[in-house]
Design a binder for these strands. Structure first.
Lengths: 199, 199
DNA sequence: GCACTTCTGCACTGATCGGTGCGGAAGGGT
DNA sequence: ACCCTTCCGCACCGATCAGTGCAGAAGTGC
């Protein structure tokens, strides 16, 4: 993705193009986003896309990375919260907003990008599965620390709690894809955190 | 789908073929399931498939109907439970099992069949959205009745409660698609119902 | 100004997409 | 035995899929 110093410099903004590609993957999924759709929305030719990003799979990978650093940046913020409860609140609140951001597709790229796919999308599906499991692992680590710090009761199960929180987030993504409003989702998030810890 | 009385009768079992098609849609999604995949697994020719089911979209519709009546039959059972809490318990417990049934694809056809799709899958996506919202509506109606019967407190919000329960079910479907075990999911379902009503 | 490198648009690749026309085979009603 | 209907396998349809070769244009360093 680095451009060489010599020769004609590229005319388009790679970051901007990647952002557009991310949106297309987000709203149409990996399989549903054709090269024609992608390059048209990115405003560049097929050739430029391949030169800058490699291929469709690499483009997807980079789009997901941008999604992580941009849209889902609330997650790292959540992990730094003071208490386990605040971690969960910040994480779910951030999910609610990310799933219903005006001007962006509804739902979550990491969920709807490639949940069930044919042969061609298998790599993308595995990338997203690992992405979701990775995020859940970070939550688990944070809750483990909370148990050690006495912030969560000694008998609490960080694995279960992280899975519980992530299940709510995943479910809200599906709800958003089905048309749920930001207020609808926030009420669900509040309900899910009414008893804490959940187990 | 009815066959005429006159002429050569079809050689394959339509119900059996539909079951196979349902599995393919379930594990690969609408867009990811090609006609070649489908007819190969159904064990019939393209021509027979079109004659018996119409087209890919109609096949999907009928596969979803079969899914509703078979795999998701626990839902109607859940709606008939005595109390609102038992409704939720039965519904989520049934989801847990349906999402992790040995010999079947993991996850839920209604969630992963067509969540984010390109132009070609838009109808399938809308069918599934309506399917999920319809199920949620049935839950809401049941919880409304529970409020009238005093089974749920007078201030309880059936819309929120049904959305809450469905969000958990949706989230568990995503978790299952990512490899969560039946035990993992059942613990999440238990945690989600630890406080009832949820709001 | 020259040489070098890379960019870009167009046309094209083989493969696959969903869907169909055709002709032969095969069963049921009379 | 006849006819009529339907089934079914094959080849084929135009369209689209992801990915590429080519050739001309254009910017940079000397």
């Amino acid at each position: 993705m680095e451009k060489a110093q010599i020769g004609r410099p590229r005319e388009f903004d790679a970051e901007e193009a990647l952002q557009k590609a991310m949106v297309v993957f987000w709203e149409q999924g990996y399989e549903g986003a054709s090269l024609a759709d992608l390059t048209e929305r990115m405003g560049i030719s097929r050739k430029s896309m391949y030169a800058a990003f490699g291929n469709k799979e690499e483009l997807f990978r980079k789009a997901l990375q941008r999604y992580s650093e941009g849209t889902v940046s609330y997650a790292v913020e959540a992990l730094q919260a003071e208490t386990a409860r605040e971690v969960a609140e910040t994480f779910l609140g951030g999910s609610v907003r990310a799933n219903t951001r005006p001007g962006c597709p509804v739902g979550c790229l990491g969920v709807q990008g490639a949940l069930a796919v044919g042969e061609a999308g298998r790599v993308a599906r595995d990338i997203l599965t690992e992405w979701r499991n990775g995020g859940q692992g970070l939550l688990r680590d944070r809750f483990e620390r909370a148990v050690e710090e006495g912030d969560l009761p000694a008998g609490a199960d960080p694995d279960l709690i992280s899975r519980y929180v992530m299940t709510i987030a995943n479910g809200m993504a599906v709800q958003a894809a089905g048309g749920a409003s930001r207020e609808d989702l926030q009420r669900v998030a509040d309900a899910a955190l009414r008893s804490w810890p959940p187990a």
